[in-house]
Amino acid sequence: MIKTEELTRKFGDFIAVDHLNLQIVRGEIFGFLGANGAGKTTTIRMLCGLLMPSSGRIWVNNLDVAKEGEKVKKSIGYMSQRFSLYQDLKAKENLEFYAGVYATPRAEAWENTLPLLEQFGLKESLNMRTAELPMGYKQRLSLVCALVHNPPLVILDEPTSGVDPQARREFWQVINQLAFAGKTVLVSTHFMDEAEYCHRVIIMQAGKEVALGPPRELKQRFEVQNMQELFMKVAGGINAKLK
């Protein structure tokens, strides 16, 4: 589903992402782990076509992102690290807007989102201004908006930062459902318990890959009990948020 080859991004002299080689398959939940500034967001932004790589190549669905960015964009649902829905629109209007932007017919958009809205308990709040929603619900709404066009690839940058444990659980339920339905899910996080739910993770430090593989395998290889310890061991874990 996704393949990168020596993916690198520099900002001036600073190397934010350093020769990354990834291969992510369909239906996989792939986790990006790393301290603040490790390069997770930069990598994700390149995968979405928001940022041009300094060198290296990316294929999404066998399409070269640099050449066929427009086609690739249709197949991606993206939730950025920063909350970025229109606060002055109603929840419903945000959904309608993104449906329109992806040229998804209204009926189809409802079909894609209604079960999720119900599951998230958002259906009753659809007529509320987005600004008035509690933080956790804003994040839930962001996820729904990213799924309005039923994309095969879902990229979530720290979707669970700043939300309560209940919401985090719901998020991971949905992520699992998505993967089960055959979608590929990329998710970055600072929570090591969440890392355990991923099929595979990459741990990044200063733009480089320091560990890559399924959590269970990694724990065995580095002889640690849990992901928390693993992270401390391979990435120094100075900045890892503890929960």
Partner: peptide
């Protein structure tokens, strides 16, 4: 400023 532009740029909108 609000980051909504970035959200728009990942969509197929020209």
């Amino acid at each position: 400023e609000l980051g909504t532009l970035e959200q728009l740029l990942v969509t197929p909108v020209k």
